[in-house]
Design a binder for these strands. Structure first.
Length: 847
DNA sequence: TGCCGATTCATTTTT
DNA sequence: TGAATCGGCA
């Protein structure tokens, strides 16, 4: 878990302007960059200007890999080094906590301690900090709970059920996303009422549910993700004096990934950078005031690239960037187009793809470096086959000196990870899944978190109800409803209703269960406070321990004998350790802070740069990251672009940007892979190469196995490809009738026929391969790679042993690497080439 | 109340 | 394919 630094003390009115603040702005030749020219060393002219420009608004259009992080950090470091700003006057917004931590570190690396007190965080974290301070002003407490999407979904589910809205065709997901969209547009229930048609029963029903949802959150003293932004904006608008506090404090606001901000975030930025009205300026201020006695708005720097806007689905509005100059008429615009990341071929491909989006400024990335290696293309028969290629290639790259952590595999949908994981595991590729179902999303962990949430925030009904019967206490839906009815009728919280269980006429068993639970929670809540004897309140670790023991949660899991529950018990134990660890790393941390962090971890925050593992993630998660070698998998129609995007306005263009983002993550090696058939929920469906592939000039891609090579079932190639002749290789090996030459037998895969020209020059020499496949007999086959695994823990292999593999046929063990459970066999297969296999899991047996 | 099997359902991307 | 919900029975 990535942990945020402790929240520094904050009092806006003690934040005084630095001596240098009255220096005329917009004079880049002022001494900071004279004496500290190191800040500008190695920057190109555009980057220099982006670092030194001073003025109210600056838009940096930064193409992928153009060094924008460097520009941002140097810009901030410059402000600090020249004493133009105190650290506390700087607010920098990044997309992930990890990016924030990195930026903070890099700035500290330049100016040292002078950077303490800056706010460098995500939109969400920054808003939580503000809301925790100001919550009391508008009916919340500072220990409010943050509901993640699963929590809010649970709440919506209950509301939909109670309103019997499903008969009108409402789905939980639909209602949830509609509410989220409205919140991102800052439209509250009243606003919706105004714009909707009251006589339409569906609108009326939705309005009622929206109102209830908002009311329930308020009652539970909770915010959902969208509220964190929206409520902050609302707070600023409703309480100008509170807004003024932050407007006075933050004199320099910088926003990264501006193309992915939604309307609420845009509004937040506008509120923060608004000038302070004279009546909100303290009489004794030492800040610069204008003619009317007000304080001018903070300077705003935004960095973005409209070609990398990939979050329109969650409300991101490209107009925020395209209309920046309209919103801030005096804005300066600087373009960064030189790319320092990728090789020429990769950039050419990226440019060629993105050029097909017509509604964009023409912008072209260029590099001073050479073209580099060609892009490698591969078409598998199935998702497993594709995954096997990825696994083999990862080993080959690793053998040629690329470390695992410098490689990444991207995919469009999380569902694609299954085949990838199966193959990577048995091929002994160390990998790490970024995102997907996270540790904190597991049911047992969510249960523990719910215990903690209700301890920290007793008003949190949703969390309380979640744990009412877990572990099983014999308190079913009937009891829950009775408690809820009582709470409603007497206008008390659910927790209070639990305390009064004896008045509700439950059976003795239920009554005792409820009272005990209420007592446990109340005691845990009380223990959080500083103790009367003068002792400090309970730590996070202590609280977790108390709750786990008091609820017998772990015990219940351990005695079921169910192997899945064993895994759950392990997770519980791990969570206890995480909590204890938090105590150590955050001696002053509170339970509320711990819960905040857990709620706001982003997928990309999980990346551990030290781990020696290949990273697997969705294309969305990949934004902002870079790797030496990148595999983009599933480059197929209906997957990338995804089928659902076709129906949405701007959908296909957004998919193209997503592909563009993926391509531009690669520094040196890029692989584009696809499969001719893909398993999707049980059935196997035929897949077609993505239209995006044809947008890349043929000479940039070297196909190890092109779509033409693997068309099966009678050999006719997809129409689209015939029409354009896009696949170099002409008739290549593609039309070889299926069923010839050993097809379908024990199989093995080989690099299918190449054109003579390719075979002589390109593939073999230009790319590191394990080599063994070369010279193997030509062979075509069906969906031979199965992803089968087997428990081989007892199998002992030695060099020279003959083995048989379900997919690769027979082979000879060449070497044994690793030890114990991680023993790896390096095997020369007779027809499939050399592979590394995890002995414990690979589907092999001794012959 | 809780457990079991049966059935149905949905699978884009995420702070 | 697998998660999630449903209905019937103990």
């Amino acid at each position: 878990m990535t942990l945020l630094p402790p929240v520094p003390g904050f009092d806006a009115d003690t934040a005084r302007p630095p001596i240098g603040a009255t220096r005329p702005m917009g004079d880049p030749s002022a001494e900071p960059f004279g004496e500290r020219s190191s800040l500008l060393d190695g920057l190109n002219p555009q980057q220099r200007e982006a670092v030194t420009y001073r003025g109210p608004a600056l838009l940096i259009l930064a193409g992928a890999g153009s060094g924008k992080t460097r520009v941002l950090t140097h810009r901030i470091a410059g402000l600090l080094a020249a004493r133009e700003a105190w650290p506390s006057q700087i607010l920098a917004i990044t997309f992930t906590n990890k990016a924030a931590a990195e930026m903070r570190e890099r700035i500290a690396g330049i100016v040292g301690q002078a950077s303490d007190g800056m706010w460098v965080s995500t939109f969400h974290s920054a808003c939580v900090r503000i809301l925790r301070r100001e919550a009391e002003a508008f009916g919340f407490t500072s220990s409010f709970t943050i509901y993640d999407s699963a929590d809010s979904k649970a709440l919506v589910r209950r509301i939909v059920k109670q309103s019997e809205a499903d008969v009108l065709g409402f789905t939980v997901g639909g209602v949830q996303s509609r509410i989220s969209k409205l919140k991102n547009e800052l439209i509250d229930p009243d606003g919706f009422a105004r714009q909707s048609n009251a006589s339409d029963p569906r609108d009326a029903m939705f309005l009622e549910m929206y109102r209830r949802y908002v009311r329930e959150l308020q009652r539970a003293n909770a915010f959902d993700f969208d509220d964190l932004i929206g409520q902050t904006v609302w707070l600023f608008r409703a309480f100008p004096d509170i807004a003024a506090k932050y407007q006075r404090r933050f004199r320099h606001v910088l926003v990264d990934e501006y193309q992915d901000t939604n309307h609420a975030q845009y509004a937040l930025i506008r509120e923060l950078t608004r000038g302070v009205e004279p009546q909100h300026v303290p009489a004794d201020t030492r800040m610069e005031v204008d003619a009317t006695g007000g304080i001018p708005g903070a300077s705003l720097t935004v960095v973005g690239d409209s070609d990398q806007s990939i979050y329109a689905f969650r409300g991101a509005d490209i107009r925020n960037i395209t209309e920046f100059e309209r919103d801030f008429p005096s804005a300066r615009v600087i373009m960064l187009e030189q790319n320092y990341r990728s090789t020429g071929n990769i950039l050419d491909a990226a440019n060629a793809v993105i050029r097909n989006n017509f509604d964009r400024h023409d912008k072209k990335l260029w590099s001073a470096d050479g073209p580099g290696t060609k892009i490698t293309g591969f078409t598998g028969y199935s998702g497993h086959d594709e995954a096997q290629f990825v696994a083999d290639e990862i080993h080959a790259l690793h053998d040629s000196g690329v470390s695992f952590r410098d490689m990444a595999v991207f995919y469009r949908t999380n569902a694609q990870t299954r085949a990838l994981e199966e193959i990577l595991i048995r091929s002994a590729v160390p990998y790490r899944l970024i995102g997907g179902t996270k540790f904190y999303e597991r049911a047992e962990i969510k249960d523990l978190l719910a215990y903690l949430m209700t301890t920290a925030n007793p008003a949190d009904e949703l969390s309380t109800r979640r744990i009412l019967n877990s572990p099983k206490r014999g308190l079913g839906p009937a009891t829950e409803t009775a408690l809820w009815d009582y709470a409603q009728k007497h206008d008390v919280t659910f927790r209070e209703a639990m305390r009064r269980a004896s008045e509700l006429g439950f059976g003795p068993k239920a009554t005792r269960s409820i009272t005990e639970l209420a007592k446990l929670l109340d005691e845990a809540s009380a223990a959080l406070q500083p103790q009367p004897g003068g002792g400090p309140g309970a730590t996070v670790g202590e609280t977790v321990q108390r709750l786990v023991q008091g609820s017998a949660y772990l015990e219940a899991l351990m005695k079921t004998g169910n192997p899945q529950d064993e895994a759950r018990a392990e997770n519980v134990e791990e969570f206890v350790n995480v909590a204890k660890e938090y105590d150590k790393t955050h001696p002053d941390g509170s339970l509320v802070e711990f819960l905040t962090e857990v709620a706001l971890v982003a997928a990309a925050d999980e990346i551990d740069d030290e781990s020696g593992a290949v990273s697997l993630m969705t294309l969305h998660t990949a934004k902002g990251l870079e790797y030496d070698a990148v595999f983009i998998t599933g480059v197929e129609e209906d997957l990338l672009p995804h089928r659902i995007s076709a129906g949405e306005p701007g959908g296909p263009a957004e998919e193209r940007r997503l592909f563009y983002v993926g391509i531009t993550r690669a520094r040196k090696r890029l692989y584009l892979t696809l499969a001719m058939s893909r398993a999707q929920f049980g059935e196997t469906a035929v897949a077609m190469p993505s239209r995006f592939l044809q947008e890349i000039p043929g000479e940039l891609i070297e196909w190890r196995q092109s779509p033409g090579d693997v068309t099966s079932r009678g050999g006719s190639r997809p129409r689209a490809l015939n029409a354009t002749g896009a696949w170099q290789g002409g008739d290549g090996g593609g039309r070889r009738p299926v069923g010839s030459e050993g097809y379908g037998t024990a199989g093995g895969y080989s690099r299918v026929t190449m054109r003579p020209s390719e075979a002589s020059g390109g593939a073999a020499s230009a790319t590191p391969t394990s080599g063994a496949a070369r010279g193997a007999p030509k062979r075509s086959w069906g969906n031979a790679i199965t992803g089968a695994v087997r428990d081989n823990s007892g199998l002992v292999l030695e060099r020279g042993d003959r083995i048989r593999h379900t997919d690769f046929g027979e082979g000879t063990v060449r070497a044994i690497l690793g030890s114990e459970a991680k023993r790896i066999a390096e095997v020369d297969f007779d027809s499939a080439g050399r592979k590394k296999l995890l002995i414990k899991l690979a589907p092999i047996e001794k012959v």
